[in-house]
Simulated assay, not measured.
Amino acid sequence: MDVWAPRAALALTLVVALVIGLVWLFQRRLIYLPDRTPVPDPPLPGARTVELTTADGLRLAAWFVPAAEPRRGVSVLVAGGNAGNRAHRAPLARALAARGLSVLLMDYRGYGGNPGTPTEAGLALDVRAARDYLARSGEPIVYFGESLGAAVVTELAVEHPPAGLLLRSPFTDLAAAGQVNYPFLPVGLLLWDRFPVAERLAEVRVPTTVVYGTADTTVPPEQSRAVAQAAGGPVRTVEIPGAGHNDPVFLTGEELIDAVVKLAER
């Protein structure tokens, strides 16, 4: 027994080291879960596919959805979460456009048939290309960030403050969110991409609304509440009882759409 114990401990240590090494090496495949399928033209009235050019030379496809009458004269930049592509968010764009808001549904590099590989730095370039596209119209812009996208638009808001900022199911930072989903791993020590939402939101002074569900097991509601508490400007929270992370209420629910409209009206 005494002879085998050190060997067993060594074997276990090697297995743990191997697992951690593989997670470290392939971590972005766990963080970014794109639907890479090329997306057809938008199935929305008057909508069109547009091209965004990033500072590092990538050409990314996105959907622009014009506002229905009466127009509010405000555009919404929608940055999605870590999975899917813009086609999955068409109901959100339809609901916002029906309330008089123009919408740009962007896809990051590597998503929806777009070239490139997603990283934190890359997504920052992508969302700037989306913001530049909308800025040409001269309309005020509301940033809408879903989960990981909340981190993307918060970082953008520090450099380019919008008219309003809506964060849907935001985490405090990626390490905190990762620890919830991978409690057996030292996530904070392994990550290359950090996405410090709460830290950056403290620098943002624009009106901000944080929307989250009480039954979210991917990003626990206490993390979204902590993000709201960190806001450097006026902040409002919208808590949706019983809603999980990817429930339909976060695409077409009245509470969510009303929250965006209220920001646009400020």
Rank of each mutant, 00 (worst) to 15 (best):
T154V: 08
D258A: 15
T117S: 07
P34T: 02
L256Y: 11
P162Q: 04
E255L: 15
T13V: 12
V227G: 05
V23Y: 11
E203F: 06
L105P: 05
A55D: 15
G164R: 10
A157H: 01
K262P: 05
L123D: 00
G113C: 12
F26S: 00
V76E: 09
R72F: 07
K262C: 02
A151T: 08
R89A: 12
G138H: 11
T208F: 02
N85P: 00
R225F: 12
T13Q: 04
T209M: 02
G242P: 06
G178F: 00
R36A: 15
V142Y: 04
G145S: 04
A177R: 00
A150F: 04
G81W: 09
R94H: 06
A163C: 07
Y212H: 11
E69S: 15
S102M: 05
G164F: 08
W24M: 09
L52W: 03
V158T: 14
G116D: 08
K262Q: 14
P162T: 03
P115G: 04
E239D: 05
G110F: 05
R109Y: 01
A157G: 13
P42R: 05
V16E: 06
G233Q: 12
N85W: 06
V76T: 11
A264D: 11
P241Y: 06
V23E: 03
H245C: 09
E199S: 13
Y32C: 03
L201N: 02
G46D: 08
Y212S: 13
D41A: 14
V238A: 06
A87S: 13
H88L: 11
A243Q: 09
R28E: 04
L174M: 13
L60G: 07
P221F: 08
A135Q: 13
V261L: 09
A175Q: 04
A79F: 11
Q229I: 04
L77M: 10
F171T: 10
P170L: 02
A176W: 03
V227R: 04
E239T: 14
P115S: 01
Y32M: 02
R128S: 06
Y212D: 11
P241N: 01
E159W: 02
R59S: 11
L148C: 03
L18K: 00
